[in-house]
């Protein structure tokens, strides 16, 4: 669906994207995570055709997206801070988008109105941030896009509405094969919906895998070794902490191989648990000079 190759974008000499490579498969829900200033929003603005890259290629549906109305008509985007024309109501905004997007479905809009009960006759400026987000989702999903780009999508929504909206999005993923790219700092929620994850730092994707691959490739090991016994050689330990004799290790590699190697060293106690996305994010970035090494989990 999306293919970004060696994308470079500079703002007044600062490289916001520095040779970004990113591939989003068709029908996937792709979580784009990264620290502040990593270049996530810039990358999303390239995907939606707002910004033009200095070099490299940004393709959606196999075509360059910049200045390509055909491709852009298949993309819906909900930015971090939703923009509406001042004093326009939700219905006026809907009519505006309906006039521009050829695939807009009035039927879908009416049906979404039952799930997202915000009066679309009210001026947008009188709505809370969360209600504005609901209107934005209602319009975006009515555009019947092939690609939905979401930047911090659930900010301002209450927990019930978060679930409601994400279930509507997932419904489109399942029924229509919608591809979703989500940039968020709420990694626990991303973990629930994403099947692919890309971790960005310093304008590059430093890690891009399916979530299951990612979780299989890194493990959290709780181990207590006998007195004087060292850990076996060859483990790629990303982080290590200890409480008494109990050590907590974050180890990269196949879970079973790690277990076999540790077992061979004869530990007094050993347990291997999967990492959450948040933990993966923190430890992967720890290896990329991100100052999280002293965070105790």
């Amino acid at each position: 669906m999306i293919s970004m190759t060696d994308v470079v974008k500079s703002f007044d000499g600062f490289r916001a994207l520095d040779g970004l490579n990113m591939d989003v498969p068709d029908g996937s829900v792709y979580g784009l995570v990264g620290p502040n200033g990593a270049g996530k929003s810039t990358a999303l603005r390239h995907i939606t055709g707002v910004l033009r890259q200095d070099s490299g290629s940004v393709q959606v549906l196999g075509q360059e997206v910049f200045e390509n109305p055909g491709v852009k008509s298949c993309i819906a985007c909900i930015p971090d801070e939703v923009y509406f024309f001042p004093s326009a109501s939700g219905r006026e905004m809907k009519n505006f988008y309906k006039g521009i997007y050829p695939g807009f479905s009035e039927q879908r809009y009416q049906r979404l109105g039952e799930a997202l009960q915000v009066d679309d006759r009210l001026p947008m400026r009188k709505l809370s941030r969360g209600m504005q987000k609901q209107v934005a989702f209602r319009i975006a999903l009515s555009l019947m896009p092939k690609l939905l780009v979401l930047d911090e999508p659930v900010d301002g929504l209450d927990p019930v509405m978060r679930r409601q909206i994400m279930s509507l999005v997932m419904e489109d993923v399942l029924e229509r094969g919608l591809t979703v790219v989500i940039s968020s700092h709420n990694l626990r929620e991303l973990e629930d919906v994403c099947d692919h994850v890309g971790i960005m730092n310093h304008g590059r994707v430093i890690l891009e895998r399916s979530l299951s691959d990612l979780q299989d490739n890194i493990a959290k090991v709780l181990v207590a070794m006998p007195q004087g016994q060292l850990l076996p050689q060859g483990l790629e330990i990303l982080h290590e902490s200890s409480t008494g004799r109990l050590r907590t290790l974050i180890v990269r590699g196949d879970r079973e191989a790690i277990a076999e190697r540790l077992a061979a060293a004869g530990p007094q106690f050993m347990d291997i648990v999967p990492l959450t996305l948040e933990e993966i994010f923190i430890y992967e970035l720890g290896g990329a000079d991100y100052a999280v090494k002293d965070i105790v989990l």
Binding site: L61, Q63, N68, P69, G70, V71, K72, S73, C74, F85, P86, S87, A88, N95, F96, Y97, K98, G99, I100, P102
Partner: peptide, 20 residues
Amino acid sequence: MQSKTSYFSFALFKKTVGRY
């Protein structure tokens, strides 16, 4: 995949007239 509104958008025209 060309949009019918690629070189002139009547919706944007109408909205701009109406807004001001």
